[in-house]
Amino acid sequence: MNIFRFAGDMTHLISILVLLLKVYATKSCSGISLKTQELYGIVFLARYLDLFTDFISVYNTVMKLVFIGSSLAIVWCMRFHRVVKRSYDRDVDTFRHYFLVGGCFLLALFVHEKFSFREVFWAFSIYLEAVAILPQLILLQRSGNVDNLTGQYVLFLGAYRGFYILNWIYRYFTEDQFSRWISCVSGLVQTALYADFFYYYFISWKNNAKLKLPA
């Protein structure tokens, strides 16, 4: 564990806490893409198949349970919670995310570290996470104004993989046999997808204005 990875995990945790706060405090999921939440649920379920077979550390296991639990809880809320589901706007959350699932799985069948059930699902989860934010970013562009908590949620979610990139650079220089090129390339793509969001977020913060993404 290094400071970059720990900062990344904490930033990821904060993004989830901000999302949970928004949904539970406001009893509303306006501006949140259910499809992105479903994709994250698939990402964590596919990535943590080794949850009960490989014990790395208490921290690792607890964080995996938090990530799986929170993503499934949000999906449940947006689909079934009596009050929350009313604020879900199906008409703006129209990204066809099943293509992302199919495409990433196909890619994982061809590009993986080892052709085993777990490694193919692990690579699938890495590729899917890189594109999971697309429905959310498209929804924000469609819905124009972005409320503060949603904006902070996306900001932290984008920043966490940026910390992981620093972690991979650090590990590359400090560990001899370190080679996580699947994670690195996907992490770079994932962080790059947030580039324009980060830009408009910075502009709105500098001008102390409401965050607006151009349509």
């Binding site: 990875r5 995990d9 990821h12 990535r47 080794d50 490989d54 014990f55 790395i56 690792n60 964080m63 995996k64 990530f67 570290e113 080892k114 490694e119 692990w122 992981y164 972690n167 996580r180 994670s183």
Partner: peptide
Amino acid sequence: SVDEDAHDEL
């Protein structure tokens, strides 16, 4: 038990 190729990152 941690086999050698277990992914230690979240």
